[in-house]
């Protein structure tokens, strides 16, 4: 056993890590697996080995997410994807992909520790996000299966709509976890009071 312990991004300084009201609920999702796959040639992601590994072909359409076996695969940029899901599963796929891409120009990087992940839900979620993020998240413009990278306040954010409730997954650089939490929780409170 390691004598090193794991801490979540909101482990410091923030007493509450969940907020809930009639309109909106917000919580930190700890120890959520994140990896990034960057390839130079896009046909690499179509390789049979990788498709077997992911259980699905990585999405070619910008700003979409597909459900693979065990992990979700989100488009991040041309030839760049995020693998999202259970930490161990992400790690397992990463290791296999690293082996598969050993001789290619590619980066397969576990970035679980680089992100803070939040889940925001219920009818007020869109209004809370609209107070911090310039994306149009109206159902006509955004839907489950869609993702986008944008801004949450002054910090970069990855947003993914998980279901129609609606529920959104937000990922920010973990060094902005406290900042994002302050902004999100204050916006949640403002929504409930006005």
């Amino acid at each position: 056993m390691s004598k090193l312990e794991r801490m979540s991004p909101l482990g410091r300084g923030i007493s509450a890590t969940a907020y809930s009201s009639e309109f909106v609920s917000l919580r930190q999702q700890t120890f959520f697996g994140v990896a990034k796959v960057i390839v130079r040639k896009s046909d690499l992601l179509g390789s049979p080995e990788l498709e077997a590994l992911l259980g699905v072909r990585a999405p070619q359409m910008a700003n979409t997410v597909v459900q693979g076996s065990g992990v979700e695969i989100a488009w991040a940029a041309p030839n760049q994807w995020l693998l999202l899901g259970d930490e161990a599963e992400v790690a397992r796929i990463c290791a296999a992909a690293q082996t598969a891409f050993r001789d290619e120009t590619a980066l397969v990087l576990q970035l679980t520790h680089a992100y803070a992940v939040f889940q925001i839900e219920k009818t007020g979620a869109r209004d809370v996000l609209a107070s911090l993020c310039p994306l149009d998240l109206h159902p006509r413009a955004f839907a489950p299966g869609r993702c986008a990278q944008s801004l949450l306040g002054d910090a970069g954010v990855f947003i993914q709509q998980c279901n129609e409730a609606p529920s959104f997954r937000l990922m920010v650089d973990q060094t902005y976890a406290g900042y994002a939490w302050r902004l999100l929780s204050e916006a949640c409170k403002s929504l409930s009071s006005s």
Binding site: I38, R40, H113, A114, Q174, T175
Partner: peptide, 12 residues
Amino acid sequence: LDVVVQEVTTNW
């Protein structure tokens, strides 16, 4: 150039 780049500062 056959290169890919990713910043990983806050992962470590």
